[in-house]
């Protein structure tokens, strides 16, 4: 569904992405893992067209995304740090997004209810806590029932109850045959959620494996231990 070929991006001297090629298909739940500054967010932003790669290209359903914008109709994006116009209320933001998207099908407002945002509709964005902002971001990502979900650190800043709600929602979407891309540092949260792992380091793609292969290769059952053993091996 999403294919990136030899994508490179440089910010000044820093190589954020170095010849990265990945293929993501429907029905998969892919975890993007790597240390801070390994290029995970840059890769996600490149897929969204927010960052323009220096070389290489990305296709979405077979179409190059460069100069293309309609494809974003099928993506729900939850940013790492959700930034919204400060003067708008939660209701305003949701209404504006509905208005701009002009979505025809049914809206998926389940998360708004389960996060309890419907009682906060009149609150201005600048008064919200980090966690509530994350809830707004998550609700927006799922609102238009997109085919692809891109979630950048979705559970950071969420309380345990909310992050459990979000996880349930992600599993449900995966079962519906959607593509889910998640980055997270909390590896234990990804257990039972993801089917594939993309591991990045210093802008380079280290490996892209299914979770079964990774378990077989490392002999570890838990994802966090498996990744730790991979990281140790890389150092030796």
């Amino acid at each position: 569904m999403i294919i990136a070929s030899n994508v490179s991006k440089q910010f000044g001297k820093l190589k954020a992405l170095d010849n990265v090629s990945v293929t993501c298909n429907k029905g998969e739940c892919i975890a993007l893992i790597g240390p801070n500054g390994s290029g995970k967010t840059t890769l996600i932003k490149s897929i969204l067209g927010m960052v323009v790669p220096d070389s290489g290209f990305i296709t979405f359903n077979g179409n190059n995304i460069l100069h293309n914008w309609q494809y974003r109709n099928q993506i729900g994006y939850m940013p790492q740090i959700g930034r919204y116009p400060e003067n708008m209320t939660i209701g305003d933001v949701l209404d504006m997004m509905k208005d701009i998207r002009g979505h025809k099908g049914a809206l998926d407002e389940e998360l708004i209810q389960s996060f309890g945002l419907d009682t906060l509709m009149k609150k201005r964005m600048r008064t919200l806590s980090g966690g509530t902002r994350q809830k707004v971001s998550a609700s927006l990502a799922f609102l238009f029932d997109p085919q692809v979900l891109i979630l950048d650190e979705p559970t950071a800043g969420l309380d345990p109850v909310s992050s459990e709600i979000l996880k349930e929602k992600i599993i449900l979407q995966k079962k519906l045959g959607k593509l889910v891309l998640v980055t997270s540092h909390v590896l234990s949260e990804l257990d039972g959620l993801v089917t594939q792992i993309i591991y990045m380091q210093e802008g380079q793609l280290q490996f892209h494996k299914s979770i079964e292969d990774l378990r077989a290769d490392t002999g570890e059952e838990k994802l966090s231990k498996a990744i730790a053993s991979v990281m140790l091996k890389a150092q030796v």
Binding site: L48, W69, Y84, R101
Partner: peptide
């Protein structure tokens, strides 16, 4: 000051 607004819109299906 609209940097956030612009960022939000760019990730949506809209032409830059």
């Amino acid at each position: 000051n609209s940097a956030e607004f612009i960022e939000l819109l760019v990730s949506q299906p809209l032409k830059r």
